[in-house]
């Protein structure tokens, strides 16, 4: 092997190791992980939102043809949400705008992510897995406000 080839190979290896290290740092420092197996949650068929501690909420969301239940979730700034998502029919999915939330909703399985909303605003999400003729009308949003008297969900 030529010297220059060895250099190119080492540089490539180094690049990938640096990337990997940065990802492991993000996982350790910011808890940036990908969804994992959920085994401590019973299957659910209705959507709910409830408070589990002062600023923590648990959301059970159902995706179906062609709506998210709930489709609007109104919460105060600083809320942390434990989101559990499943599908009642075929595969759906969504990504919340400007947030590291991106989940597939698959029938027969529960998906989970924890997200914290530090800034007020509207966080839009659209169904991003093809789910039939009206797929493009399936969307929802988080509405995060400075003061919310009663956290609520709309569309269910």
């Amino acid at each position: 092997m030529d010297k220059s080839e060895k250099l190119a190979l080492s540089l490539s290896g180094l690049l990938l190791i640096v990337f990997f290290g940065a990802l492991m740092y993000a996982a350790a420092a910011e808890d940036l992980e990908v969804p994992t197996c959920i085994t401590d949650m019973d299957p659910f068929t209705t959507d709910t939102l409830f408070q589990t501690s002062e600023d923590t909420y648990e959301l059970h969301m159902i995706a179906r043809m062609w709506a998210f239940q709930p489709s609007t979730i109104r919460l105060p700034v600083g809320s942390t949400v434990d989101m559990y998502v499943t599908s009642q029919d075929i595969i759906h999915g969504f990504k919340v705008e400007n947030k590291n939330v991106n989940l597939m909703a698959v029938p027969g399985a529960i998906n989970y992510v924890r997200v914290r909303f530090n800034e007020p605003g509207e966080y839009f999400f659209a169904c991003h897995e093809f789910c039939g003729a009206a797929h493009h009308t399936m969307a929802g949003r988080f509405v995060i406000e400075e003061s919310v008297d009663e956290p609520e969900t709309i569309g269910g």
């Binding site: 992980e33 990908v34 969804p35 994992t36 197996c37 959920i38 998502v85 499943t86 999915g93 991106n102 989940l103 597939m104 698959v106 399985a109 529960i110 998906n111 989970y112």
Partner: peptide, 14 residues
């Protein structure tokens, strides 16, 4: 391709 899928442990995805 299934990083965002349920029912697969994150360590195997890694």
């Amino acid at each position: 391709h299934q990083y965002m899928d349920p029912a697969i442990s994150s360590q195997w995805k890694l």
